[in-house]
Computed example of a mutant assay.
Amino acid sequence: MAYHKYVHPLDLSEAFETDSAIYSDSADSDELDCPDPQSMSCQCDMHDIKLELSSHPHSMRQVVNIIIAVERLKHIKNMSSGKFCDEELLGFILENVIEERLVKPLNETPIYSKTSLTLQCTICDKYKKTMVQSNKLSDEPLHLKAVTLSAGAMQYKVQFSMSTFVSSATQKEAQPVCLGISNSNLYLACTQLDGSSPVLILKEASGSVNTIKAGDPNDSLLFFRKETGTRYNTFESVKYPGWFISTAFDDWEKVEMNQMPTTRTTNFTLEDQKRI
């Protein structure tokens, strides 16, 4: 049966640096025959495998892998007369030496799936201003404003249905949500108009919002809700990272998208909560 000697060059300086970390686990195992540390080759007589030390540089990882492979070769039980063919060696390497690695596809498009948890609530900023809807009789597009409401005007609060989502991709420490206006098909959406900076609009959902992924018509409806401190929440656009829902200090100003840092507030509380 034909067989071959297998030679692997090994750097002297790195080999001796690993001497204290790598050792044989059997008193009867073959040792490397290296009487002269300064010589350029060392013979390992185990199973006709020859290790050769050379002055060519190799990484420490390569050195350790070689020694581990040799140690494993010493314990093969099914070899006859200490010799084996190419196919047997290849089979051993595939089964014992080569490490299995899980390869994850790059640039995987996250898929957001709606859960059964939907929370009905109103939203106030940290200055106790409540989100209300703009006058439907005005000529400007529908939008939200932040207003300090008196006790007799609470009916103007916007009721939100905040639906939660889970994602197939690794998430930051935040919960993907959609903020819909209760009893309507309107949602808060972060989008770009004519290439401008992202803006906050009220948008009608296109079809089902049970599953959303990047590039879908409804991908602008998703926000990362993150709890800050003990009671505040921030809402960051999923489609435009770094852009947050914000309000101004003064009353009757529009609710808009802003980057951090900003003089506007991005901290909100959820009031009148009820699971639906």
Rank of each mutant, 00 (worst) to 15 (best):
E71V: 13
S167A: 15
P110W: 05
L221E: 01
S168W: 08
E140V: 10
I76N: 01
E236K: 07
F84S: 01
Q171I: 11
M162F: 04
N135T: 06
F268T: 05
E108N: 06
L186M: 14
G152I: 08
Y23P: 00
A169P: 00
F16Y: 11
D216S: 13
R61Y: 03
Y112E: 04
A146V: 01
F235K: 00
Q38V: 13
A153H: 09
L179Y: 03
L270N: 09
R231C: 14
T115A: 06
E52W: 14
K226I: 00
C178P: 03
E108H: 09
V209C: 04
A189V: 00
C124N: 08
H143F: 09
P176F: 08
E87D: 06
P9A: 05
S26M: 10
L117R: 13
F160I: 07
N135F: 13
E140K: 01
S20V: 06
T191R: 15
D11P: 02
K126I: 03
T265V: 03
G215L: 10
V63M: 07
Q192D: 01
I68L: 13
E14D: 11
F224Q: 02
E14M: 10
D25L: 15
C44R: 12
T234V: 05
K126W: 00
A153M: 10
F16E: 04
P198E: 09
V209Y: 02
M131P: 00
S134W: 08
K274C: 13
Q192M: 08
T191E: 10
K203V: 09
F84T: 05
Y3E: 03
T263P: 00
E14Q: 11
D33E: 08
R61P: 05
K136V: 08
H47P: 04
M1C: 15
N183K: 15
G215C: 14
A214L: 11
E271G: 09
S208I: 13
Y156I: 13
D139P: 06
K226S: 06
M60P: 12
K128P: 01
T109A: 11
H58W: 10
Y187H: 10
L106M: 11
Q171E: 06
Q155I: 09
F249P: 01
V166T: 15
S81E: 10
Y112N: 02
G207V: 14
E140H: 09
P198F: 05
Q171R: 13
E99Y: 08
